[in-house]
Design a protein around this nucleic acid. Structure first.
Lengths: 215, 215
DNA sequence: GGCCTTCCTGACCGTATGGTCAAAATCAGA
DNA sequence: TCTGATTTTGACCATACGGTCAGGAAGGCC
């Protein structure tokens, strides 16, 4: 018989290793933080979703803030990985197109994490301000250089790279953060495979043509 | 001597009329909800920002949820007003261009309200789900018709109107919701007038060219 | 002034929350 | 099987929260 517990079953053995216990808790926490925000989330609810007693959470994550911090860092890593695609590309059409695909995939597969990230930034980034000032700033400046090179080479129109990046982030992230609104306007159902493809396609068409990277 | 109280001084007279008291509280609430989210906001903090005793808040707004609901409705009204611009326009370049300007102005002037709205939708719209299903759905369908007409008239490329609207919402809203991130990447300072103009200009250039509404 | 309505507020209440702790359970290795 | 380290957990605690209430203060109107 299968477990009837909430999230993932508690595995067969009674005791868990640190790694899997932490992963289970992080996953539950991501979901709850996404749905309720940091302030609205409770350790009790996270424990219920994880199928563990609350005291057990505090064994692995001493405080709520520490748990939250790890959830945010986890999604930030995923977010940064999509960056690599930008560099491997040879020109704007390929690079930005692939970046849009990657970020849309993140919005679809990691919607909860995206929401947690958005919520964190929206509330003034109390936890990851240092990341914004170091890692994100460096990454952004690197990408700006790439885009400026493309412009200098005449491979796209002279757009302010900064605002182009914001547009890429905004548009792709929107499908996660405002997913509920999109679903509602879709008759109450989540977008299906074809609709996600249409979304990606539309975004790429508009932006790539908009920056003059395609004909 | 000037009041040293937090937000706006309590006015000269000891008693306030309903209207101004409610406006003062709504303004403070908008700020606190934006900064802390619904769950993280406390009536005590809202009271402090408004410069009133907590019990006084409950005199005008019996419950936290009722107060929150009014804050959300307030920004939704502003949001909808920007819609009119769409209809008054004669073609896509004028209509969408003006809509971008209007929504960017909202992001700048009502950043707190925008964040509250984003937060509400992100958490599944527990309070304004009915608005999404009625008012917003109607508005969206109306705009889709307009855009489809423009496409049929050959005034812009055949883009899926729905995803175009999402892009408009996402891009403009981003400057409010992720304002903190943008400010950080701007060296820690808010965008100045010139930079806001540049942002609007870039967005309009990319999108209008992207949908083939300009040459 | 007298009276009524509206507004204001300190003190209070029940509950829920983040976090603690000590004892029990489980496991790996000898 | 014994032993020490790790993990699990119910019970518990202090605090902070949303909300209540009774009584006082202020203003309008005759």
């Amino acid at each position: 018989m299968a477990e009837t517990s909430a999230a993932s079953p508690k595995a067969t053995s009674k005791k868990m290793r640190r790694q899997e216990a932490e992963a289970l808790i992080l996953s539950a926490a991501e979901k709850v933080f996404a749905e309720a925000g940091f302030g609205g989330a409770t350790m009790q609810l996270i424990a219920d979703v994880a199928g563990l007693p609350k005291a057990n959470l505090h064994y692995y994550f001493p405080t709520k803030e520490l748990l939250y911090r790890q959830v945010v860092q986890k999604i930030f890593q995923i977010w940064l990985q999509a960056a690599d695609i930008f560099d491997q590309a040879d020109g704007p059409e390929e690079g930005i197109g692939a970046y849009i695909d990657a970020k849309m995939e993140i919005s679809r597969r990691h919607a909860d994490g995206s929401k947690v990230w958005a919520s964190e930034v929206m509330h003034g980034a109390p936890v990851i301000q240092d990341y914004l000032e170091t890692t994100l700033t460096d990454w952004t400046n690197g990408r700006i250089e790439v885009i400026e090179r493309w412009i200098a080479e005449g491979r796209m129109a002279p757009i302010d790279p900064r605002h182009l990046l914001y547009m890429l982030w905004a548009t792709t992230q929107h499908y996660a953060d405002f997913g509920h609104q999109i679903d509602t306007l879709n008759g109450g159902s989540p977008l299906n495979d074809k609709q996600w493809e249409a979304a990606k396609s539309n975004i790429k068409t508009i932006i790539l043509r908009g920056i003059g990277a395609t004909e």
